[in-house]
């Protein structure tokens, strides 16, 4: 078995149809409205996908192990705000400190989530809905009516939010690096493989001696750090933060994962797939506009497409499972 085969089998799995769908949307819309497929148009889509994409990439890690984190929206906003506030309050603070603040805030929320879920055995859906409220409330209290505006944002973040390299926005480069590193971590480390095993069959995972609680805890903590990075990206992206930053994005993050082929039942999917899902979600939104679909229809169509994507994924999964069974029967 060659490495090339390994790679191609890995890609063949679930990300491929999403990429095809993405290409189809871009090409058809681009034919109708050429600016859509122009480099500016694509760059705009990539920028808009970055924060959700990075969050989806780290969320995929949790969904793969049958967990979920709905608190990411609140945490992302909180990080963005606190980093800005910190930089504004201590003018000339080194950029590394800003980054440190962001990652630390994300990590704290992740550790709290992880502890409650992994070591107290509480269901992640409930814990993270609760944390969604708690973090948002604390955030809102800290922020009050204060806004973080462009001049308060650390310069490197502003640069991050506006610059690009070879036409690819820095923001998306960050999301891509994040998604690729999660994908590689999950694919090439024993730690990552354990997450797939846990999500695929939690009881069997215990039986083969995988430390499920520890893996869960670390995954949430790691996801917290990624959320911190997403908060930095959010701040760089808009050069602005206030008490409503990041409000309600958690559902888009989950949607991106689902569209990107991360099975909500666990065990299947990649972070890169989740990022592609985020890009596809954003592309559809832009495409609907570029095709002249009324603003009022856009959300409805996006929702319908999301339902379709879930249905399609399931139908494909059932089909391929059936095909495998049939092949086995023929062999036997």
């Amino acid at each position: 078995m060659t490495g090339r085969n390994v790679a191609s089998t890995a890609l063949k799995a679930r990300e491929f149809p999403i990429l095809v769908a993405l290409a189809a949307v871009v090409v058809t819309t681009g034919l109708v409205n050429p600016t859509f497929a122009s480099s500016e148009g694509i760059s705009a889509i990539l920028i808009e996908s970055s924060v959700i994409g990075l969050l989806a990439a780290s969320q995929s890690m949790l969904i793969i192990m049958r967990q979920i984190d709905l608190s990411v929206g609140s945490t992302t906003g909180l990080v963005a705000f606190l980093v800005g506030q910190n930089a504004a309050a201590n003018i000339g603070v080194p950029f590394a400190v800003s980054v440190g603040v962001g990652l630390a805030v994300g990590l704290v929320v992740g550790v709290v989530n992880g502890f409650l879920i992994a070591y107290l055995g509480l269901p992640s859906l409930v814990v993270t809905i609760a944390m969604l409220y708690v973090v948002r409330g604390v955030f809102s209290h800290l922020a009050g009516g204060e806004t973080i505006t462009a001049e308060q944002v650390p310069a490197p973040l502003v640069e991050l939010g506006s610059g690009s390299i070879f036409g690819v926005p820095y923001l998306f480069v960050c999301a891509l690096i994040g998604a690729i590193s999660v994908t590689l971590l999950l694919r090439y480390s024993r730690w990552g493989r354990d997450l797939y095993a846990i999500g695929s069959n939690p009881e069997a995972a215990l039986r083969v001696g995988i430390p499920v609680a520890r893996r869960t805890f670390v995954a949430f903590a790691l996801s917290g750090i990624f959320t911190g990075v997403a908060g930095l990206l959010l701040l760089g992206r808009f050069s602005f933060a206030d008490a409503t930053s990041g409000l309600g994005i958690e559902l888009y993050v989950i949607a991106a994962c689902v569209i990107g082929g991360v099975a909500i039942a666990g065990g299947v999917g990649t972070a890169v797939g989740a990022l592609i899902g985020a890009v596809l979600l954003q592309t559809i939104t832009f495409a609907l506009g570029a095709l002249g679909v009324s603003q009022f229809w856009q959300q409805a169509v996006a929702g319908a497409l999301l339902v379709l994507a879930i249905t399609f994924d399931r139908v494909v999964a059932v089909r391929s499972a059936r095909r495998v069974v049939r092949r086995v029967e023929v062999l036997a």
Partner: peptide, 28 residues
């Protein structure tokens, strides 16, 4: 048998003790 349905057969065989080279799972 209690296998991991989503994992490849190779991985099912080696789950939890995958061969590594330099800390990296040696898929090949």
């Amino acid at each position: 048998p209690s296998l991991f349905p989503d994992l490849s057969l190779a991985e099912n065989v080696f789950v939890g003790r995958q061969p590594t080279t330099g800390g990296r799972v040696d898929w090949r």
